[in-house]
Design a protein around this nucleic acid. Sequence first.
RNA 1: GCCGCGGUGGCGGAAUUGGUAGACGCGCGAGACUUAAAAUCUCGUGCUAGCAAUAGUGUGUGGGUUCGAUUCCCACCCGCGGCACCA
Length: 949
Amino acid sequence: MSNVFYDHQAIEEKCLSYWDELALFQDVNLDLTPSDLAKKSFLLFAFVYPSGSGLHVGHIESKTALDILARFQRMKGQQVYFPVGWDAFGLPAENYAIKTGIHPSQTTKTAIDTFRQQIKRLAISYDFANELATNDPDYYRWTQWLFLQLHQKGLAYQKQGRVNWCPSCQTVLANEQVVNGLCERCGSEVVQKDLKQWYFKIKAYQDELISGLDGLDWPTATKQQQLNWIGRHEGVNITYPVYAYPDDGKSLADGGNSLANEGNDSAEEGSSLAEEQLNQGEDTGASRAGEITCFSSRPDTNFGATFVVLAPEHALAKQIAEKNELVAEYLAKAEKKTELERQQEGKQKSGVFTGFYAFNPLSKRRMPIWVADFVLANYGTGAVVGVPAHDKRDFEFVEFANRQNPREPLSVIRVVSGPDGNQDEITQVEQVYSGEGQLMNSAFLNDLSVPEAIETMIDYLEEKGYGQRTVNYQLRDWLISRQRYWGTPIPIVYDPEGNAHLVKEEHLPWTLPDDVDFKPTGESPLKSSKEFQERVERLYGKGWTPEYDTMDTFVDSSWYFLRYCDSHNQQAFADPQRLEQWLPIDLYLIGPEHIVLHLLYSRFFTKFLRDEGHLKISEPFAKMRHQGMILGPDGQKMSKSKGNVINPDQIVDQYGADTLRIYEMFIGPLEADKPWDDRAVAGVARFLRKLYRLAVEEIELIAELWPVLDEENNGNGQAGGNNQAELSSPEFVGRKALVQKLQQTIKKLSEDLPKLKFNTAIASLMEFNNVWEKASLSRNRLKTLSEENASSKSTFHTPYLLLSAEELLKLIAILAPLAPFLSEELYGQAKYAWQNLADQTLGEIKCETGEARARRQALESLEFAASIHLTTWPTYDPALAQSEQITLAVQVNGKVRAELKLDYDLINDQATVLTQAKALPALEKWLLGQQIIKEIYVPGKIVNLVLAA
RNA sequence: GCCGCGGUGGCGGAAUUGGUAGACGCGCGAGACUUAAAAUCUCGUGCUAGCAAUAGUGUGUGGGUUCGAUUCCCACCCGCGGCACCA
């Protein structure tokens, strides 16, 4: 018996071909009946890029997690849809093609085949009948269709402008793909280029992308990151008149108006010289030179605004540069800087004075206008007012500016008091205060709090016509053009005059040509295709040309879940009823690295298609969770260069797929990062081997013992008609504890699996296994003992069962989602061993008693499904799962001093519990001569006796 | 700087409507089997003192609330992730 060997290789091979034969979970019916609708569960795993190196252990973690859930839900009777597909376009395959000359379609196909084979080997129960790949014309035809729809609504547009360019990848990048000034893919320094590119107008949905987050069951951190990225800021756009002075000699085109009647009403004492000069405008020769609008989220501090700064890209800055060499020089320098250089300069301020002034009507102050690259062109208006007392950057800029131009220093005016009413002058950067406080030096705002002052000020500005309430967003439109080959062609053609036209819908899929030269030239590789050019001229006319750019692969991967609803549909991207039935996704498991880009884009597409009448939902992913990363044994992120990569194939070869699955689920919470531990893998393998051995022994024993079973062994653990001696026999006690543990384990798994708490679920199975092992051990001892004694003709001991057939089947069933191979094998063995017992063994048996016959027939009539994975999830009996006795901690003054064994029936009997507790011998020395002033009993939890001090 | 998450034995981690901290696994120690090793099995294992019973102490630090705090509140320290001259 103990030589039972779990031959994982043979068993896995056998199961895989058996499941293939059954087409288990393949091609599920996606047309739901109304009663099935409530039970539908659409489980989605992040789209995978099929890289050449195959599946890594990180993939396996998240795939296994969802697979366990899928299998569990199926056993619970849910209608589960668990599809798979490939994010197959992308740079690595193309770069590989450049190096080797092998066409990306070839490497991609090979990679997908490898992935699919590895996934099957791990028993991930995907529905492969609906598999899709983004490089399939059947798929990208609808990606292109989506482009057409967006274009027709004005949400896909072409724009000339400065864009991020990766010199190594030879393509533009979206803002989201630039990380700290570097290309997120290859790490090269990103430079700016002026190009005409295609954009999707995601900003059209910016408000809904915020409000839509409210009802979603997503981790709060994820929601927060999306909010940060969209970056909504309320504030006010304040417009200031701009003046030039004759001595500066650079008046702008349309100047000439005097300041005349500006700001008479709120005049304060102590006007500075500058203000007086301004107020006397005409006399000093100041001339009106247009106006400038600045965005501010802190208009309450506007009395402390002492200067204005323009971004180098600002229109006014460019205008000034035409007549001012210093400014022109600065703009030229700023333009050449890369994102990285701007960032590396960090807090090092630079800038140049323009010679112009803005007039602050509140403080009656003239504010010198500077140009500096710390102001961003594409946020707000590209111009800001400087409030150095309450903004660190502004203060640092003042320090710089006053070195640069000491003849006309910028001043620092405190307008908000600090904590404890601090009103000190601000002379050092450490004093700059951006927190809340009382307003000061601010006329009608004085003594108001910051929020009050903001409201009062905005109302005032609006009333006076100086400003207008505004909302700004950090989100920018999505640049989707890529100068690469291996992607979805943008369905646009140009007429001979260069005007863009949509490719006609009947020409979709607008196929990616094959005859291209991959060598990067800085231009789109599609330019080299003869076929592409000929196709356009044939279909659209002489002199017409195709759009040579392809789409960002995020376009492909941000609507795939819709296609899953109906992957083979030739008439539409999916059938409307299917979409309505299956969406939204019930659980999306995705790595934290996709939180910003992919999710934002997917939500944008969903909202757009809803507005077009194709979808009824506004949010695609009702519930989302993230898996953590599996780190190398050294606690570092796995990477080839560090040599700490674990190869999953090798683990499967050595220990089997179930071990790998359970190990990865066991090492820690799904969402946490956790290091790989080789020795712990072996521990999991040991656990499964023991479990298998115990189960096989029990299966055999059940089959062996049917003719001689007695009541207590075949029952459900209840006392029945046994006498006292039987009840207290070790085998009865051992069996009873085991059955109780089984009930508790079913309960634990039923609760933990839907919550994705696989680590604790597995721990409870291990606990069960430990109890089982101990019980089995004492049974074997008894057996050995009785065999020895049998020869000397003393007491003969009957072998006994620890688990009944039904109980064992329950155990095998709860194992099924976690260890699909092991449980299928055990299920098959049980079926084989227990069916047709009479045929197998009756010949050897002299006489079958009536009772034994009944037992055999009961065993034989157990119904077996074709697979354990087609059976239903076992139920548990709460009464059986509950121990009859509980152990209660008894505290004295909050410290545990004794334990009280308590019958479960007495759990609510406070008086008895307290009496029993106080009588505990262990408490004697603590209570002796002490007065108890308070007795606390929390039913089932604790007793605490509080003594007088 | 802002936003978010976290800090528990030698290690991964468990336990939260406040109720015996350390489940489960790894490692480690002792023992059994073996000529020996591996494998397997048994017992032990937070720390300190003690042969032991036992006592003290213990969930990043310092306070607070409570009969009782890993859990709640306040302040701080450290780590991780995201965003970042966003005015």
